[in-house]
Design a protein around this nucleic acid. Structure first.
Lengths: 258, 258
DNA sequence: GAGTGGTCTAGACCACCCG
DNA sequence: GGGTGGTCTAGACCACTCG
């Protein structure tokens, strides 16, 4: 996981996995296999060599091979059948759609120019709903950041974020007045709360007068509404958001596993 | 994974993991820990004993302990910090919301009475869109099943499913005329295509006249629209659906991981 | 430096699938 | 019966964190 991006798409032949650098063997094996699948050298639906063969070929123990292939199974690129073998999945549905990204990362991934303008920035008392989501007392403060977000200069989202004041006031206020919403999550990480997971509820709604005015759409237009709680590695909730997306400009794709 | 449901919630003390039954040791360890977390014996945020200690306590090797705890990390119940320890996550956001379920399983889980009535059942040529999703030729046949679905006697969803005729015609037609839509996925499994994953696109739309009439709602009412492709273990697409959900009656919750 | 998780080995036996 | 993945061992050394 840690090393994934470093050598993703690195070119390596099956036999060359000398541990010259500080990269774990199972990561090299994993990326070697990933590259062979991407290049078509290993065809979709094809059976891999057995774990024993791979171990011999890579010059490692079988457990190390399994550690590499297990990652690719999690990624949806391989699957195992007990007593039969390990296979490459067909149109290999990668797990990217179930990865947590923020608006800006997601836009960049798709070559879209994303922009956010801050409409409100205030410190308020948590509402019951927000306090519950963020595990705060009712009288605790939260930082409220309301932004309007554009993709390729089209307004697509009105975003209300609420952040525990107790945890992040310093790291956020030290950047004022030119606060950079794009890298909010890195502020969380800086305080020891790396973002790990989000739970989001999705609904279809209609735009009311107020929302319509702000987003320059018709009242009654379809809105994809999202309510999201973001959690850090240890399970601490770090952000709660209401998110109003233009129905005609925005769709959401997710991958679910059984 | 295979054994999970069998002994989930089984009561086991930390020291009692004799391999009397055919249950793998790492599953027993995993479920023992899971149970200790659920019961509060292991508090949230608390540090687990080290892997060496657990190995000694359970009388297994360290690798076996890791195999058990790794599963719980995937489930979001634990997290590791290199050089520090393994910890219980706080409000432990379990992964249930990112699990693929069908309408009926999902309803049962929440104690809702679900019902489906079949509106259409036909064999047609695949449209370009459907052929692309199901990896079929344009002239290939698909089975189209249109159903209206109720939760606690309220109409919530209009569901259009398309299934490759070539793969599943026998197993579906042998049940006619009383076809049981609830267990469609078990038919796929019977033919060697266990359902593994789904990719779904979610949009907010408005009900048009036709949809409004069928679902007994107003034209212009909000609709949560879902387009979903379901894949088997080996990556074969087995089902493509259009899904129109009443916006005021239906919401979707998903978990995303970073 | 002590304690922890991260990686890795070189075997072993079992359970499953298929011809 | 032969080949495969599933489980498991009893060690080893490294990398990281913290006091």
């Amino acid at each position: 996981m840690i090393y994934g991006h470093q050598i993703r798409s690195a070119l390596m032949s099956m036999s060359d996995i000398s541990n010259t650098e500080g990269i774990p063997l199972y990561v090299k094996i994993r990326e070697s296999l990933r590259q062979q699948i991407a290049s078509g050298e290993l065809e979709r639906g094809q059976k891999l060599p057995s774990e024993d063969e791979l171990a011999t070929k890579f010059g490692v123990s079988r457990m190390t091979v399994r550690q590499g292939t297990s990652d690719l199974i999690d990624d949806g690129l391989l699957y195992r059948r007990h007593g039969v073998g390990t296979f490459v999945t067909l149109p290999h549905i990668e797990r990217d759609h179930s990865r947590l990204t923020n608006f800006f990362e997601n836009s960049n991934m798709h070559g879209i120019h994303a922009k956010a303008s801050i409409l409100e920035f205030e410190v308020i008392h948590a509402t019951p709903k927000i306090a519950q989501a963020l595990l705060l007392e009712l009288d605790e403060f939260v930082i409220h950041i309301k932004t309007l977000r554009q993709a390729d200069d089209v307004m697509v989202t009105l975003h209300d974020a609420y952040i525990p004041h107790r945890l992040f006031s310093e790291v956020i206020q030290e950047e004022l007045p030119d606060f950079d919403v794009q890298h909010l999550w890195s502020k969380f990480e800086k305080k020891g709360y790396p973002v790990k997971q989000a739970v989001q509820k999705i609904e279809a709604r209609l735009a009311d007068q107020e929302l319509a005015k702000v987003m320059h759409i018709q009242a009654g237009a379809p809105i994809l509404f999202k309510e999201r709680t973001v959690y850090a590695e240890d399970g601490t909730p770090v952000e709660f958001t209401y998110c109003f997306n233009r129905g005609d400009m925005y769709s959401l794709t997710v991958t679910l596993n059984r």
